[in-house]
Amino acid sequence: MELALHFGIELPATRPIPRRVTDSVPSFEQIVDAHYQGLFRFAMSMCRREATAQDLVQQTFLQWAKKGHTLREASKVKTWLFTTIYREWLGIARREKKYEEVEFEPDQHGATQHHDDGENPRVDSATLQTALEELEPNYRAPLVLFYLKELSYRDIAETLGVPIGTVMSRLSRAKDSLRTILRRLEDSAASNIIPLSAS
């Protein structure tokens, strides 16, 4: 089956990426190793279904295998991958009508920003996922990318196709919302604790 690789999609492992600077050429496998976990976590946070998240990651790397060689700047690989997976997710979300562009951007309409400076709420994985689900996708996407620590806010803006200022204000609002939701969930959990009755 070795011959198989001579037909159809040629893996970028054997295809150098054109670049402007001379640095080491990452192979397809190296690119997968470097990014598949981050991409999966992003996809999982956006679609909340493991099977769909896996499909999105697969699809993204297939796109890379087909088109990655056209990327002229090797430093943009990560942004390219996250942009691609975000678009793939958008396509699914729009088909399922789970995503609609938010028409009103408070930061562009002079709304004042609320700063929550209270105590930090406690966070665990399960509560965090519950809280993220309450956020609008417009806010969830930059927030998840931010917490993945993979991309700078400039790269997040490029990935999501929005201005840098919009990303910064969405991040700030999303964090405030997240704190509020986490605090509510924390209070709700505390009120559900049934104290042991003294006998």
């Binding site: 690789l5 001579h6 037909f7 159809g8 999609i9 040629e10 496998e29 697969q58 297939l62």
Partner: peptide
Amino acid sequence: SILQNARQPAKRSF
């Protein structure tokens, strides 16, 4: 699975 799938289209083509 990602690495395998990236090769599959080639096999299908073949």
